[in-house]
Amino acid sequence: MLLYFVGQVLPYIAGAIFLIGVIYRVAGWLKVPVPFQLTLFPAPTSGAGRIAAVGTEVLLFKSLYNNDKNLWLWAWLLHVSLAMVILGHIVGIYFLMNQFTLIGLSASASQTVSAFLGTVFGLTLLISLIVLFYRRLVNPEVKQLSDPADYIDLLFILVIAITGNHMRLPGVEVDLPAVKAYLGSLLAFGPAPIPDSGVFIAHFVTVMLFMIYFPFSKMLHFAGFLVNRAMLVEAAPVYPTPAGTPLRSSFAGARAPVADSGQAKGVQA
């Protein structure tokens, strides 16, 4: 009964809360206008430049690199290893660790490389989480800034990383084809019973709980990052205002505190 709930009901509850929650919060930001350009100079002036500017922030954490190389190292390692781990889950499980045969490796070589990369990134994630948790405790400014949730967030991911890495320990066997078949059944909305493996269930359940926690937490910083950066690289206003430029918000039209000179007439929001 409990296994039925955990294996065949909880994943849908978690998935729904995760998706709806994230969309609800991000949509809540996006429906609010940006009444003024918040361009931070020097700013890119072309579309490609804007993509490049945000792209280097996303991929390399450029601002943080320029500011604090120590924090950058661990934060960057954490996020890169996390991204690699997520990617590794998708391809490693789908191809049953044979994904590197696609680039010419033999099946056994592919499985060795897959296991090696999984271990490297899994351990990198674990170590960078511990370092950042330690930093939060010992850096006096960061310690004073931190809320309980800031520690819990790190611990939560730490538990996921530990239970995940646990499955890689020598002597711990997880039936990968069974996991693949199970996850496939969930995605096909015809849930099969969860594989009967304690270490897998522990990892799977913490991930499900984290997905439920996610939209209520500041894990949403990944989306805030993009929405924020998009505002900072917006093109600066051009004067005279080109014909046909829409009003940015109702503030520009209706609520004039002094009599309007008529220049904005006819474009009331």
């Binding site: 919060r25 809540g28 930001w29 996006l30 609010v32 206008p33 940006v34 009444p35 003024f36 918040l38 943080l64 500011n67 604090d68 924090l71 934060a75 850096n139 400014e141 960061v142 800034l145 931190s146 809320d147 800031d150 500041k218 949403l220 910083h221 805030g224 990052f225 929405v227 924020n228 505002m231 918000s249 503030f251």
Partner: peptide, 24 residues
């Protein structure tokens, strides 16, 4: 204000308290 300017909500909800701003 939060329904007037997007920056306020996003900036309030995104900080992870990393402390990188202190020495800036």
């Amino acid at each position: 204000y939060r329904q007037w300017a997007r920056s306020l909500m996003v900036m309030l909800e995104t900080c992870t308290k990393c402390g990188a701003c202190a020495n800036a």
